[in-house]
Design a protein around this nucleic acid. Sequence first.
DNA 1: ATAAACATACCGACCAGTCGGTATGTTTAT
DNA 2: ATAAACATACCGACTGGTCGGTATGTTTAT
Lengths: 194, 194
Amino acid sequence: MPQQRSEETRARILDAAVRRFAIAGYDAASVDDICAEAGVSKGAFYHHYPTKQAVFLALMQGWLGMIDMGMSAARKDTVPETLVYMTNLLPGVFAAAEDRLPMFLEFWLQASRDEKIWKAVIAPYRHYQEIFTQLVEDGIAEGSLKQVDSQVAAQVIVSLAVGLVLQGVLDPHGADWEKTARESMQILMKGLAK
Amino acid sequence: MPQQRSEETRARILDAAVRRFAIAGYDAASVDDICAEAGVSKGAFYHHYPTKQAVFLALMQGWLGMIDMGMSAARKDTVPETLVYMTNLLPGVFAAAEDRLPMFLEFWLQASRDEKIWKAVIAPYRHYQEIFTQLVEDGIAEGSLKQVDSQVAAQVIVSLAVGLVLQGVLDPHGADWEKTARESMQILMKGLAK
DNA sequence: ATAAACATACCGACCAGTCGGTATGTTTAT
DNA sequence: ATAAACATACCGACTGGTCGGTATGTTTAT
């Protein structure tokens, strides 16, 4: 592996960036900060990434990719099982990424204002919607779910998840979000499952 | 009425601020921008508000107050009726505040990072939670809802609403959010109503 | 040798907040 | 009544500092 030092530098920059962005936010996290935390010079930073935004985008892509993988891997035998399993995954997501969750919000906000970022985020986002829509259709086909509008049902599920995560970010100690997530899905399933 | 000019200036500043913040975001909206849009000097700005953050906070307080009022006014005869009515209110919220919705996200994000803002936002937020909890309990008492955990049910409702609004911000044309909101609530009600 | 990787010094734009001073009321003393 | 004294509202140039990005020089690996 010829350029392995280079690889490591890139990784260090990304690693430092995610921490600085998470703590301070996109604007307040300066390139100098990130470089300092990464133990890397500004020259190195701009050698590997053309702009600060490019780093942000790279982080976002990585994050979206991870979600994608996680969702594919979560598929179980039946649809309700899959959904319950996914719900049980949520606390792990919280624990593993506690301090990074504000970044999720930051992604969303930037996407709502920046055309380029929006395009980068909207494609995978719609892809998730499709996955859930397909999941619900599978559930209907296998007879475990009622004959609901699969599109709407998928959006309900996603909305619920997004809302839970967001409230978890805002008020981590305001509720037992793990329990809430589990019971929320149960209530939802009563409306969806046969 | 002494110094009514003063009142008007404050109003103009707030009005300009909400527009600039909505379009550009908190950081990118400079005080100079806001002053220019308000047709007011920087001196006037700092005469009325000690900091830029103070203006932001004032806007947030106003917004939270409006939500509070809206929710109180939405109470109908029975609990399911109230919930459905509230859902039907959502599109109006969207239409009336389309370009301001990213500010809602901004509030959330700032609150997650700034102690002072967090305290200002968390009290009314928990108040809403209580209102919904009470609403669910009323529903159980009047026999229109199943005997669910009222706290959890309230959180489900709020999560769903937050998730819908957020997705509406990110992808306004990605779905018919009005229809989705209505049908979402119906699915939820199947899990909650007797 | 030479090209990629990295470091340092620097630039220009921007920005929140300050400050000295002015304009517009409002109160007080005569 | 009215002028002086005071208070509030407002103006806009200026400051001190930050930040994204660049230019230029040095090291390292092949």
